[in-house]
C-alpha cells in the first residue's frame, strides 16, 4: 500500500537524527524512568483512541467472529451453532447471488472508472485558459454523487420515461429499454453512476501528472516519440504508483456499495442488484439474523482482503517506483 510505504520512509528519516543527537547531548544523566514517563504522557494523548480501538474496533471484530458461530436475534441470548451459519451460506442462493453481483460490479466499475479518470486527467493537465472551470465542473459529480438526493435523480433519469429515454426517443430510438426495471441493465445503471463520479481519482491523477518531470517528455520528443508513445512509455509507468493507490482504494470502496442499490433498485429487479452489503443489511436489520449477518461480515472481510491482497501481489510486476527517494 502506497500510504504505508511513504509513512515508513518519513518515519525512518525522522527517527534517525533525533534519537542519535538530542537526548544524550542535552541530558547526559538520563533517569531510568524517563522512558516510562514519556510513554505515560503519550498514552494520555492516546487514551480516547485506545478506548475506541479496544472496544469498537478490535473488540467488535472479535465479537463479530464469536457471533458468527451463534444464532442471535437481539431478544434471547446468543445460541452456539458452530459452523452452521457458514454452511448455510454455501446453499443460500441469495448469498451467492449477492456475492456474484458485487464482484461483477467491482470488476466492471473500478477499471472503467480508473481509465476514464486517467483520460480526463491527461486531457485536463494541459495549460490552457479556463482549464480550472472544466476541472471544477467535472469534479462536481464526485462531490455530490454518493448522496441519496443524487441516487433519486439517477433513478428518475434512467426510469421508463426518464431523461435518457426522452433523449433516445428524440433521436429516433423507438423502443428504449426501461433501464432501472430491467434485470439485464439495472446493475449497469449503478455502474454508470459510479463512473460518473470519476472526479476524485481525476484530481489525484492530476497531482501525479504534475510530478512527472518535463525533461522526460522533451527528451522523448527529440527522439521522435509520438504523443501516444509518450503516454504509454512515460506517463503510465511514472503514474503507476498513483494508479495502484486508486485501484486499491477504488476496489475497497466498490465492495461497500449500498446506497445506490437500496435507493435506485431496492436490490432488484429479480435480485440483479442485490449487493453484498445490502443483503447483509437485510439479514441483520430486517430479519434480525445477527449471527448470520456477522458471519457474512467475516466472509466480507476475507473476500475484500483476498482481492486487495491479489492486487498487492501483482503490483510488483507493474508498479514502477523511482530509484531516487523523493521525500
Amino acid at each position: 500500500m502506497s500510504t504505508t510505504k511513504s509513512t515508513e520512509v518519513v518515519h525512518e528519516s525522522e527517527a534517525g537524527p533525533s534519537e542519535a543527537g538530542r537526548p544524550r547531548a542535552s541530558r547526559p544523566a538520563r533517569r531510568p524512568n524517563d522512558g516510562i514517563r514519556r510513554s505515560l504522557t503519550a498514552y494520555g494523548f492516546l487514551t480516547p483512541w485506545l478506548i475506541g480501538l479496544l472496544t469498537l474496533t478490535l473488540g467488535s471484530f472479535l465479537l463479530s467472529v464469536y457471533l458468527s458461530f451463534t444464532e442471535y436475534d437481539l431478544l434471547s441470548p446468543p445460541e452456539w451453532v458452530g459452523l452452521d451459519n457458514y454452511a448455510t451460506m454455501l446453499t443460500d442462493d441469495l448469498f451467492i447471488t449477492s456475492l456474484m453481483v458485487t464482484l461483477l460490479y467491482v470488476v466492471v466499475a473500478v477499471p472503467v472508472r480508473l481509465v476514464v479518470s486517467l483520460l480526463f486527467a491527461v486531457l485536463l493537465s494541459q495549460d490552457i485558459k479556463g482549464i480550472g472551470i472544466y476541472r471544477t465542473l467535472l469534479y462536481i459529480p464526485s462531490l455530490i454523487g454518493t448522496s441519496v438526493g443524487v441516487a433519486i435523480m439517477w433513478q428518475n433519469i434512467f426510469s421508463d420515461r426518464g431523461l435518457i429515454n426522452m433523449v433516445l426517443m428524440n433521436i429516433g430510438v423507438d423502443d428504449p429499454p426501461a433501464w432501472v426495471s430491467s434485470p439485464q441493465y439495472a446493475i449497469y445503471v449503478i455502474v454508470l453512476l459510479s463512473i460518473w463520479q470519476f472526479g476524485s481519482e481525476m484530481v489525484i491523477f492530476l497531482a501525479g501528472l504534475k510530478q512527472i518531470p518535463d525533461p522526460l517528455y522533451e527528451a522523448a520528443a527529440i527522439d521522435g516519440a509520438s504523443k501516444v508513445g509518450q503516454f504509454f512509455h512515460i506517463t503510465l509507468p511514472m503514474l503507476s504508483p498513483v494508479i495502484f493507490f486508486n485501484l486499491v482504494m477504488g476496489t475497497i470502496n466498490a465492495f461497500m456499495v449500498f446506497t445506490q442499490g437500496y435507493i435506485i433498485t431496492h436490490g432488484g429487479p429479480i435480485n440483479s442488484t442485490l449487493f453484498y452489503v445490502l443483503y447483509l443489511y437485510r439479514q441483520g436489520f430486517q430479519y434480525f439474523h445477527m449471527g448470520y449477518a456477522a458471519a457474512m461480515a467475516v466472509v466480507f472481510l476475507i473476500v475484500v482482503a483476498v482481492v486487495a491482497g491479489f492486487i498487492f501481489l501483482t503490483s510488483k510486476y507493474w508498479v514502477h517506483y523511482e530509484d531516487t527517494e523523493d521525500n
Binding site: 510513554s39 463479530s64 456477522a294 472481510l301
Partner: peptide, 28 residues
Amino acid sequence: LKFKLRKIMFALMLMSIMLPIQVTLIPQ
C-alpha cells in the same frame, strides 16, 4: 511522542483505515 508499542499501534491505526465499517457493524 515516543512510547512503547508505538510501531504496533501505528500499524493498527493504518489497518483501521482500510477496515470496511460493515465488518464491525453488527457487534457495534
